[in-house]
Design a protein around this nucleic acid. Structure first.
Lengths: 300, 300
DNA sequence: ATATTGTCTTTTATCGTGAAAAAACAGTTT
DNA sequence: AAACTGTTTTTTCACGATAAAAGACAATAT
């Protein structure tokens, strides 16, 4: 098995959802841009849809014949990329405890355990190394640096530096810049989420990421923008394993965001600085309390 | 051919230099740590040295029999790692002009041109991507973002942020910290280089890197320390292709470094900040003037 | 007892290969 | 002639295989 066809399967599933809304499908190139895949993949999708009797396909005519059924869909787990699979396995091991700092990481063992080739694992580790959690020994193994208190502090130090600067840059953006409408929309979403907080509090993490990315983008600096990937990754997994007081934490954060948004809209740099500092401080606190003390004792 | 034995060849060459200084070689493990390779490689080296009549090898006794000759050495180009070879080729193409922003990068073509497998090229590109000069399109090609004026400005913005903070952290380090003796040694080297500037000005870039890395390390933040890799890479190639007024530039930089060092030693934060700012400003200027105007017009 | 050597095992680095997916080209349809 | 479909070529992604290099273990020497 040399390459899974998850791109096709994922696009197929998304195409099925499209099917419920129309009588007939658009042209192949159009479908391609819509699904974010090449025409080759689009044609594979159409071929199967014809085969399973979902559509009649004759050149330009792609008529919908019947409604989609649950069993038309490919199983979710078959639509993941290899990189996602490896990342999940790796993070599970990392966070499942027993992952002490200084521990060696074995490519071959990881590959066998996950059931993939070594090349994919190697490439994953290289990509992952920029998060600062692992380090390569030349011609030899990787070393786990550990998800320690030190790591969290170093990460947040940079985050605060970058976000304060980005927020200041945001506040002085010209009034006709598109970011202000983006900000308004985000503000709306925050208010809606605040209203339904009891039932929808888990949706916050996604909103949080979009909000902070918008601000970081105002820096117009690729290194700052890219660094948010590190933060997003850490917070993503952090949210997954630390569910304590999730609802309360998110409620507080939404409130802080709204103050922060007001400050940005006021374009008062002093207010922006204060609101940003306040929110970042509590974000750091949340992250720090979630790190088990056992983890913080390791490593110098 | 699956893996070149450049580790062995490089260690062999370094071991030859060792040979000129002693009557007999130390134990295998000791040699291993000395050369930074495993005992397996050490034994391969010893075996060849015995074969070519350089030493008599009987268990612990490794007696030097004759002086080394130039033809004992492996050719320099055989001691490079694949990663180095690929990086050089890639950077040559990048800087040789004709590398416009937005251009596609083709793994297969690169691999064929350099004469290596695609895997190595892929891994190189992934590692290289953190420098912010290229970007990956999912399931598709890489895109060159170009060595533009914008890139240089974004890079130096972060550099200044990080170095000012590191320098401030440096200045308040306790008097008994080892960094102060490191700093004294670097100061010496700067003075010596200043004296022989006419003949040794090309040695500055290496000293420059060591000096700035020492300062960055004071931040005790892995993201700051790691970011210096980006700066070092850019300046490394920058020095190679911009030889205009090299001597003068380096002479000025040495002077600035010495003021900077004095400021650090005074532990006066105001002085440190001023000296650091001044030096970084001229470093940025040097970098900016070396970017051809044609390059700066591209990209938004 | 500890460090060193001899031998064997495991892991890393790299390649060639093949299927999935993208991209290019050529012929059709509106 | 502009956009679409049919066909072919190229590139990316992922694997297994293999030599280089590292690492582990047992036997030996100081």
């Amino acid at each position: 098995m040399s390459k899974s066809n998850n791109v096709y399967k994922d696009a197929y599933n998304r195409c099925l959802r499209l099917l419920d809304e129309t009588r007939s499908l658009p042209s192949e190139p159009e479908l391609g841009t819509l699904l974010g895949v090449s025409r080759t993949t689009v044609r594979t999708i159409l071929a199967r849809m014809e085969e399973t009797g979902l559509i009649a396909w004759n050149k330009r005519a792609k008529t919908v014949l019947r409604e989609t059924r649950p069993d038309d869909f490919f199983p979710e787990e078959e639509t993941d990329t290899l990189a996602e699979i490896i990342e999940r396995s790796f993070m599970r091991r990392l966070l499942a405890g027993g992952a002490e700092a200084g521990m060696q990481i074995n490519e071959l063992e990881l590959a066998r355990e996950i059931g993939v080739g070594t090349t994919s694992v190697r490439e994953f580790l290289i990509r992952f190394s920029r998060f600062g959690l692992i380090e390569k020994r030349r011609n030899s193994h990787w070393v786990l640096k550990g998800f320690t208190r030190a790591f969290a502090l170093e990460l947040t130090e940079i985050r605060e530096m970058f976000e304060l600067r980005s927020a200041a840059a945001f506040a002085v953006l010209p009034q006709d810049s598109a970011v202000w409408t983006d900000l308004d929309r985000l503000e709306d979403e925050h208010r809606q989420l605040a209203n339904d907080i009891a039932t929808r509090f888990t949706e916050f993490s996604e909103l949080d990421e979009r909000f902070h990315r918008l601000i970081h983008r105002a820096s117009r600096n690729r290194f700052i923008v890219d660094f948010y990937d590190v933060i997003a990754m850490i917070f993503h997994y952090h949210y997954q394993w630390n569910k304590a007081q999730e609802r309360e934490r998110n409620e507080v954060a939404i409130g802080e965001h709204l103050v922060y948004i007001e400050a940005l809209k006021s374009r008062d740099l002093g207010k922006v600085d204060a609101a940003c500092r306040k929110h970042l401080k509590s974000a750091r606190q949340t992250l720090l309390t979630s790190i088990p003390e056992s983890r913080s004792l390791q490593k110098s």
